[in-house]
Amino acid sequence: MALLETMKKVAKQSQDAAVPAAFLFGNVTATSPLTIRVDNRFDITGEAIVVMKQFRAGYYPTHQHSGFKNAPTTEPKAGGAGDAAFASHDHTLKNDYLTNTDDTSEYYYGLAVGDKVVLLRNQGGQSFLVLGRV
């Protein structure tokens, strides 16, 4: 029996090597600690989840966006290309889109319970990269 099990294991590893990564979908079920239910089958948490700064709540150094500080306001945009669709116009900046808290940083809201996310699982399934919200 041990030989048969070893052969099955080798065959599976061989098959898995042909697919080094896989896309999966999940739902955020908790934020502290971050927990994601993957394909309604299992939960991942802790160091198994790799999260880019855009999906982590906090302030991060960046460049300045004119018109965002002390929103809501409007920001004029110049037209171009002679096409009516690109004529000069204003954009209303809403508090929901407020990112700058000062001239040199941005705030990201992070993931929230109920967010649907797309994940990239590395070969072996030991870590999952959050690619974005769906």
Rank of each mutant, 00 (worst) to 15 (best):
residue 18 A to K: 09
residue 131 L to G: 01
residue 76 P to S: 08
residue 70 N to E: 15
residue 134 V to I: 06
residue 38 V to L: 02
residue 126 Q to K: 03
residue 59 Y to E: 13
residue 126 Q to E: 02
residue 98 L to Y: 03
residue 2 A to W: 11
residue 91 H to P: 02
residue 7 M to T: 10
residue 29 T to I: 15
residue 105 S to M: 06
residue 28 V to A: 02
residue 127 S to W: 02
residue 113 V to L: 05
residue 120 L to V: 09
residue 96 D to M: 13
residue 63 H to M: 14
residue 81 A to R: 12
residue 98 L to A: 14
residue 56 R to A: 12
residue 28 V to R: 00
residue 134 V to E: 07
residue 105 S to K: 04
residue 91 H to Y: 08
residue 126 Q to I: 01
residue 133 R to D: 06
residue 41 R to K: 11
residue 41 R to E: 08
residue 42 F to P: 01
residue 84 A to P: 03
residue 20 P to I: 04
residue 110 G to C: 14
residue 18 A to Y: 05
residue 53 K to Y: 10
residue 96 D to P: 00
residue 124 G to R: 02
residue 28 V to N: 00
residue 26 G to S: 08
residue 45 T to I: 04
residue 61 P to E: 13
residue 91 H to G: 04
residue 116 K to I: 06
residue 53 K to M: 14
residue 108 Y to T: 12
residue 126 Q to T: 04
residue 111 L to E: 01
residue 72 P to R: 05
residue 68 F to T: 01
residue 115 D to A: 03
residue 109 Y to L: 12
residue 116 K to W: 03
residue 55 F to T: 01
residue 84 A to L: 07
residue 93 L to V: 15
residue 103 D to H: 12
residue 7 M to P: 04
residue 28 V to F: 03
residue 69 K to W: 04
residue 4 L to R: 09
residue 30 A to G: 09
residue 47 E to G: 02
residue 101 T to P: 07
residue 74 T to S: 14
residue 34 L to H: 04
residue 22 A to V: 11
residue 19 V to K: 07
residue 22 A to L: 09
residue 59 Y to P: 01
residue 24 L to G: 00
residue 13 Q to K: 10
residue 73 T to C: 06
residue 41 R to P: 01
residue 108 Y to E: 12
residue 63 H to K: 14
residue 86 F to L: 10
residue 46 G to S: 03
residue 82 G to D: 10
residue 18 A to N: 10
residue 10 V to E: 10
residue 85 A to Y: 08
residue 110 G to I: 05
residue 43 D to A: 07
residue 108 Y to N: 14
residue 16 D to H: 08
residue 16 D to W: 05
residue 122 N to S: 13
residue 95 N to Q: 12
residue 2 A to T: 12
residue 126 Q to P: 00
residue 34 L to E: 03
residue 93 L to C: 10
residue 19 V to S: 06
residue 53 K to F: 14
residue 91 H to D: 12
residue 133 R to Q: 14
residue 94 K to G: 10
residue 108 Y to P: 03
residue 12 K to W: 11
residue 123 Q to K: 09
residue 93 L to F: 11
residue 15 Q to E: 10
residue 71 A to S: 14
residue 66 S to M: 14
residue 113 V to G: 13
residue 80 G to W: 04
